[in-house]
Simulated scan of single mutants.
Amino acid sequence: MRILNICAYTWAIGGPARIIYDHTTEVLKQGHQVDILSPMTPGEKSYPVPQGARLIECARTTPISNYYREFSVEMYRYLKANISQYDVIHMHGIWHFGSLAPFLIPNKAVLVITIHGLLDHWAVEHSKWKKKLVTILYQKRLLGKADLIQINNTDEEQDVIRYLGYRPKNMAIVPNGMKLSEYTQLPAKGIFRQKYNISPEQQVILFMGRLNIKKGLDLLLPAFLKVYQQIPNAILILAGPDDGYQRETEEFIEKNKLHNRVKLVGMLTDSDKKEALADADLFVLPSYSEGFSIAVLEAMTSGVPALVSDRVGFGDYIKKHNAAFLTALKPESVAEGLLKILQDSSYARLIANNAYNMVVENFDIKVVANQLLEEYKKVKKI
């Protein structure tokens, strides 16, 4: 098969780019061909491309793309000229031009949409008027026309049913996966701490994600303040690019005099990210909304005990395996979980071990990639 993924394939977009990378690495081994069509803004850093795949960058068309995500005349022209070459066109996410354009051009490809958590209650309420307009214009109709809707879990299944008003026949649950080998051998401990002047005695709480309100930073920051009052050597590392909440974060730090206890280190990639995981005592993501958090899987594969909400995309697995402290979406609950993990080493080891076993058993990319390929084949057009 020749597969085209459509996604803003950048470091800033986070999980979807990583998912495409890992899946592509596996399907290339089986002799399939993969292209990635990525609308880009000048200056954005593209995600690494697996050897054997091809990245096709196309410029976003401004000012329209400032209001309608990823709008790109260049992308449309590429599709119009080349769409007949592909057996599968896999669109990542909804609400943007990349999930509309393939439906505008006659083709015989299998059209696949991965929701990536964008229909949960929190996500739908964000920029609500825009999403209502897109819904009225085309989004419900296109989901019904897609050959395959990939969802990651039963929560997302209910989100789709609520949005459409019925259960589409073309929907299948296929979780995201992890390339386990990349996170089972981490760099030596101490490198990240040395870079950021963190002593061995300090307990590192690591947050990795975009600085966006949906990640639960409004819960995490006041929770950390409570933790710091009881554990003075605790330090919070916020690793991620600004996505609308950095100013509020800096104001909180200033107001509560946390300059030496909360560090904004920007987005970490490649070895820098692994060095942070190697030195972390705890990983935290009290998110309001995630499709399927690759950052959480990376932490769990790295053996770091985690505190997360059940909105990270696989809360049902976490509950079943007791694989993390599942927090309510309240600062008090986040603080309780942080203190439990930092002060109870036996509990921290237990959930870290459970989490690693859960990932190995359920989210190995070799297994997951084959599941998705089989779903492609079920709906492949003659």
Rank of each mutant, 00 (worst) to 15 (best):
L225I: 02
Q158C: 08
K214V: 14
I191M: 08
L137P: 04
Q158D: 12
P168H: 02
A123N: 13
L219G: 06
S181V: 14
V110F: 00
L211R: 10
N197E: 12
V160D: 08
Q158A: 11
L221E: 02
T184S: 10
Y196F: 15
V160I: 10
E157Q: 15
L119C: 00
Q158R: 13
G165L: 07
R193H: 01
K132G: 10
K131T: 01
P168I: 07
I161T: 13
N176G: 14
F224C: 07
N197V: 11
A234F: 05
N233C: 09
L148N: 07
N153C: 15
A172M: 10
F207H: 13
I231V: 15
Q229K: 15
L180A: 09
L186W: 03
L119Q: 01
L142G: 05
T184G: 04
I161A: 10
E156V: 02
G177E: 07
Q139W: 02
G209S: 09
L118M: 15
Q230L: 12
D218E: 15
N176W: 03
K226M: 12
A223V: 09
T135D: 12
T114R: 01
Y196C: 09
E156H: 00
L217I: 09
I115F: 00
N197L: 12
T184K: 11
G117D: 03
K140I: 08
I198R: 00
Q203L: 11
L221W: 04
M171Y: 02
R210V: 07
N170P: 04
P175G: 08
L118H: 03
V124N: 03
S199W: 02
L238S: 06
L118C: 08
R210I: 05
G216C: 04
D120V: 04
V174R: 06
I237E: 03
R162K: 13
Q185H: 14
Q158P: 03
Q158K: 14
I191D: 05
M171E: 08
P187Q: 04
D218K: 14
R141K: 15
Q230I: 11
E182C: 07
A223P: 06
E156P: 01
Q203S: 13
N212V: 08
H126C: 04
E201T: 15
R162C: 01
H121R: 14
K140R: 15
E201M: 11
G144P: 09
P175S: 09
R141H: 13
R167W: 00
K169M: 12
D147G: 08
